[in-house]
């Protein structure tokens, strides 16, 4: 079985198939590039969403997300070939700590074949949020 930390990386075959904000200095690919120095920024208004398509997978036990200014997050999964028919997986109110990127560990139990992970940032602070990484 693949180690959990590897799945959401571009080097493991994951890719961002949708992101609702774009600033090419901080593209959504930064979420999965494995580089702790890079991040994706949302560019105004909420909700903001991104979808990470994984390179085939059987089971996920934990999702770790590094973010700043995200207040409320919802995760959906889809097991179809195309990123459609998403089903709610979990939602979280994140604690915002000023002056640092917040690491949130979300325990999930996804069996079957979740191929796409859909993250929806419902609420943020000050219109802009940053996502450093998901694992």
């Amino acid at each position: 079985m693949t180690r959990a930390g590897d799945l959401c990386l571009s080097s493991a075959g994951a890719r961002v198939s949708l992101a609702t904000s774009s600033d090419d200095r901080h593209p959504a690919e930064c979420i999965i590039d494995g580089n702790p120095e890079t991040f994706w920024t949302t560019t105004g208004m909420f909700p903001q969403e991104f979808i990470i398509s994984l390179n085939g997978l059987q089971k996920i036990g934990k999702i770790i997300i590094e973010s700043s200014s995200v207040r409320s997050l919802k995760i959906y999964t889809s097991a179809t070939k195309e990123p459609t028919d998403f089903e709610p997986c979990t939602d979280r109110e994140l604690e915002h700590v000023e002056g640092q990127f917040h690491t949130e560990e979300i325990t999930v139990s996804i069996t079957g074949r979740p191929i796409d992970l859909h993250f929806s940032i419902l609420q943020g602070l000050l219109w802009f949020a940053g996502i450093g990484a998901t694992m």
Partner: peptide, 8 residues
Amino acid sequence: MGKLSAKC
């Protein structure tokens, strides 16, 4: 280039 959105 970045595209921002503001609700005014």
